[in-house]
């Protein structure tokens, strides 16, 4: 790995969001391929995930890294779009995910981290924000032709909205069209099984593993 990419990786892991954009710009000036830069940052986020799983990192550190990743990604966005237009059909995303916090729940911190982790892993994420009505999840999924509907709830009082989402999909005859991924502090695998969700993500990085599994992608086999 070149010195500049090594530096970029370290900055994302350390969550130095203010310093990342300049280093990304420098890497582009050095004619490093945009995909390589993205991969460097994604791999760095993977390290962040491992640190989180090991209990070395917490929300503070995860947020700083997620913001550092985002700041770098913003710099690359025009280049990535340019490249996508040129190489249409190549380098497709792993899948499309419509994502939001359920109605009457305004917690966004966890949702934002999961979104960053999913984007870093190569998913195309449509963020509906917080306090999202159930109908909106389905409307948006239909509109963008999503693969997965991901809903999070952070309150014991709003968690049943995830169950209602599944019921609504059934009522509309759309249950088999989408995989439903749920997450949030009061939820559990036990709860997900009970309501018939396709997957439960315990944290941001677990959500990536589960989303990949739902898309039939085995962990370890990178595209």
């Amino acid at each position: 790995m070149s010195e500049i990419l090594k530096q970029l990786s370290e900055l994302v892991i350390a969550g130095k969001r203010a310093e990342v954009p300049d280093v990304v710009k420098k890497a582009l000036e050095d004619n490093i391929d945009v995909d390589v830069i993205v991969k460097t940052m994604s791999d760095a986020m993977q390290v962040v995930g491992e640190k989180f799983n090991k209990g070395e990192y917490f929300i503070t550190e995860m947020l700083l890294s997620a913001h550092a990743f985002k700041a770098g990604f913003e710099v690359l966005k025009p280049k990535l779009e340019e490249k996508a237009a040129k190489e249409f059909g190549k380098g497709e995303k792993l899948g499309r995910i419509v994502f939001g916090t359920v109605q009457n729940d305004i917690h966004d911190i966890g949702k934002n981290m999961v979104e960053s982790a999913l984007t870093a892993a190569g998913f195309e994420v449509y963020d509906l924000g917080i306090d999202v009505p159930l109908e909106k999840f389905i409307e948006e999924a239909e509109k963008v032709n999503a693969d997965i509907i991901a809903a999070c709830a952070l309150l014991t009082t709003t968690m049943d909205q995830t169950k209602n989402l599944i019921e609504l999909l059934k009522q509309k005859g759309l249950r088999d069209k989408y995989k439903v991924l749920i997450g949030g502090a009061p939820l559990s695998q036990e709860y997900a099984d009970r309501i018939g969700a396709d997957g439960y993500g315990e944290d941001a990085f677990d959500a990536v593993i589960v989303a990949k599994r739902l898309m039939g992608i085995e962990e370890g086999k990178k595209n």
Partner: peptide, 11 residues
């Protein structure tokens, strides 16, 4: 703001 609080612990 919770997100800002979390990040300001470091920043």
């Amino acid at each position: 703001g919770i997100e800002n609080l979390m990040m300001n612990l470091a920043e």
